[in-house]
Simulated assay, not measured.
Amino acid sequence: MSEPVRLSRRVAELAACSRADAEAYIEGGWVRVDGKVVESPQHMVAGETVELDPEAVLEQPEPATIVFHKPVGIDAISGRTEAVGLVTPDTRWAEDPSGVRLLQRHFVRLTPLVPLDRDASGLMVLTQDGRVWRRLTEDADQIEHEYVVEVAGEIAPYGLHRLNNGGLRYQGRELAPCKVSWQNEIRLRFAIKAVRPGQLQDMCAQVGLDVVAIRRLRVGKIPLTKMPVGQWRYVPVSARF
């Protein structure tokens, strides 16, 4: 049996390339050891079969941004059951149209953004990309979110007008106008900026309605689409919120 060596050295010999290029191939998920993708250049190999994908390209992997369909009862940012724990290779949406290659490194240091109530479901965003982090934190109040809110009860006179035109208050601040319409007899559709946890429930209560369920459909320009609950997809690097 040959002496163990770093995978990067074996790939450099196999591909007749520099050690730096070998590391780039490995980190890009292009190298298999006994049929399994290994992304660590420091991985030690001896007699294992090492293969470089014939379609391998030399490029640094882009940081991942992921859209997840959060179920009810799961914490978006922090808590007992955090959503990031449900984002695994096995829960990727089979119909993900992004074309992004799945890498194990995409599940390391994923930061959840844009809060969503524990009792709500729908779109949430997790990212490794500092550009996305800055956009969704520093510009958060300028980004429109879209929700469907299922309600019960009878809306107060001029209630829809009040929801749309501002003047309601939440946590001591006057709320700006937003766009609210009936989707059907029991569901309101909100397009709203600078929404805070618990705000939609409070707004509905101020016009005589009880909230039964909330689902977020969109953050900025990124929609939830028909992705099932508990699954996720990549957001291409070229996409903008």
Rank of each mutant, 00 (worst) to 15 (best):
M1I: 14
E3H: 13
E3S: 12
R6D: 14
L7W: 12
S8H: 13
S8G: 07
R10N: 06
V11D: 04
L14K: 02
A15W: 01
A15Q: 09
A16H: 15
C17G: 03
S18G: 12
R19P: 07
A20W: 15
D21P: 05
E23Y: 00
I26Q: 03
I26T: 00
I26D: 10
E27A: 10
G28Y: 08
G29Q: 02
V31N: 03
G35Y: 04
G35I: 04
K36F: 11
K36L: 15
E39N: 06
Q42F: 14
E48H: 06
T49N: 09
V50E: 05
L52I: 15
D53M: 03
D53K: 06
P54L: 06
P54R: 02
P54V: 06
A56R: 04
L58T: 06
E59Y: 07
Q60S: 14
P61G: 03
A64K: 01
I66R: 10
H69K: 09
H69P: 06
K70G: 03
P71C: 10
P71W: 10
I74R: 06
I77M: 08
I77A: 12
R80H: 14
E82F: 10
V84D: 11
G85K: 15
G85F: 12
L86K: 08
V87C: 09
T88F: 03
T88D: 09
D90G: 12
W93N: 06
E95V: 05
E95P: 09
D96I: 02
S98K: 02
R101L: 11
L102Q: 12
L103W: 08
H106Y: 07
F107L: 10
V108R: 15
V108N: 11
L110F: 05
T111Y: 14
T111I: 15
P112Y: 02
V114D: 00
D117C: 01
D119M: 04
A120Q: 13
A120D: 01
A120K: 03
S121P: 08
L123Q: 01
L126T: 00
T127V: 05
T127I: 04
G130E: 07
R131W: 10
V132W: 11
E138L: 10
I143A: 02
H145L: 12
H145F: 06
Y147W: 10
V149W: 01
V149Y: 01
E150R: 13
P157N: 04
G159T: 04
H161M: 12
L163N: 08
N164E: 10
N165Y: 14
G166C: 03
G167T: 00
R173I: 15
E174M: 11
E174Y: 06
E174N: 10
P177Y: 13
C178E: 08
Q183N: 14
N184V: 07
R187Y: 12
L188K: 03
L188T: 05
R189M: 03
R189T: 09
I192S: 05
V195N: 07
R196I: 05
Q199D: 12
L200R: 00
L200V: 08
M203R: 11
C204S: 11
A205D: 07
V207N: 00
G208M: 04
L209R: 00
D210I: 01
I214W: 08
R218E: 09
V219H: 01
G220E: 05
K226T: 14
M227Y: 09
M227H: 11
Q231C: 11
Q231P: 04
W232Y: 11
Y234N: 10
V235Q: 14
V235H: 02
P236D: 01
V237Y: 14
S238D: 12
F241G: 04
F241T: 07
